[in-house]
Nucleic acid binder design. Structure first.
Lengths: 187, 187
DNA sequence: ACCTTAACTAAGCATTTGCTTAGAAATGAA
DNA sequence: TTCATTTCTAAGCAAATGCTTAGTTAAGGT
């Protein structure tokens, strides 16, 4: 028999997630991961293959962490009101030490360029689409809303959410609140 | 007397701007700049000091390039309609080879982290605020709109524009159009 | 022609990047 | 104990990063 791992893969990925979230993919170095995860580079590579492998696992962990608010949205049954609440929940979710880190997925979307790995692209789009579907479901709870209209509005809402992920890094809480309130005026 | 420069600083900055725009600040290397600008690293550093210097000049060049649509907005006098047109103009402005590069400034905002240079931060915020002021001016052309209301709505509009800069990289033209149209229903 | 000045070329610098590897240390069945 | 197996540590790798410098080439006033 062989030696046992001295770390828990799930635990160290949690810590990696926090790093990627705060700094983005490119700006997070393997040395930083090593330090934060508390394990040697050898262990990182033997457990997750490469830096990208760590990141893909981090996206999974992120999804799991954000599930508490996406599931709340999935359970919601008062139409656009539930989505509005999701926007506020998201701001709270992304806050840390007074600063706002934005959304791990959105941050990564913004890093996308010609040679972004398709595997990562897939993960990002899948995540975005799942949120958009939740928007559609909730919008359809509104009286007399057509499928077509809900779909259009879900694009609009996703755009606002992406914007919020960026805005929240540089604008203050008041401005963000104003933005959210106006966003939901006409749905 | 001494030898003359074999390049035009304004011209080479134009090319640098295109690179930063497409790839972002961090992902653009000095070697890439060297190649694209068509001059040696020595010349880059002697003309602009360092990579950040090139970037600051690129932001200036970007502002100059986008002036054709910001000035159109400044001249506009039909309220929110002019802003709506600005959104469409922006999408056209950021397009290249069918793909959309987003906004240089927004892309950079998204790269921001704890150790982003304050000089760059200042430039970004100043740009964003100047656009927001244009929004306010145009909104105030609307019948019976208060200063307070215009300010709030300008935050909302800036959020949509930031979102659009991200969305335009991954969503198709139809979705973007839907988004813009719904955005202006609320004003 | 001489000489000061500035711009050019290209090689090189230290540091950091993602990733690998040699060898020591633990694990537990035989 | 023996020994195969896996994990660990720590050193090291090639490549890429931002930036510098030694040495050559033009420019043009004197």
């Amino acid at each position: 028999m062989a030696r046992k791992k001295q770390y828990n893969e799930e635990e160290v990925i949690e810590k990696a997630t926090a790093l990627f979230w705060k700094n983005g993919y490119e700006a997070t170095t393997v040395r930083m991961l090593e330090k934060e995860m508390g394990i040697n580079q050898f262990s990182i590579y033997s457990s997750f293959g490469n830096k990208q492998g760590v990141f893909l696992e981090s996206i999974k962990a992120y999804k799991k962490r954000i599930r508490c608010i996406t599931e709340k949205l999935a359970r919601s049954n008062n139409g656009k009101e539930g989505i509005r609440q999701y926007f506020y929940d998201f701001l709270e979710f992304a806050k840390e030490d007074g600063k706002n880190k934005g959304c791990l997925v959105t941050n990564t979307v913004n890093e996308i360029n010609a040679d972004t790995d398709p595997l990562i692209m897939d993960q990002l789009m899948e995540f975005a689409n799942s949120i958009k579907q939740l928007f559609i479901d909730n919008l359809l709870q509104e009286e007399g809303k057509t499928e077509e209209e809900a779909k259009r509005q879900s694009n609009y809402l996703m755009n606002s959410l992406l914007g919020l992920s960026v805005s929240s890094k540089v604008f203050d809480q008041c401005q963000l609140k104003d933005t959210i309130e106006i966003t939901f005026l006409n749905l």
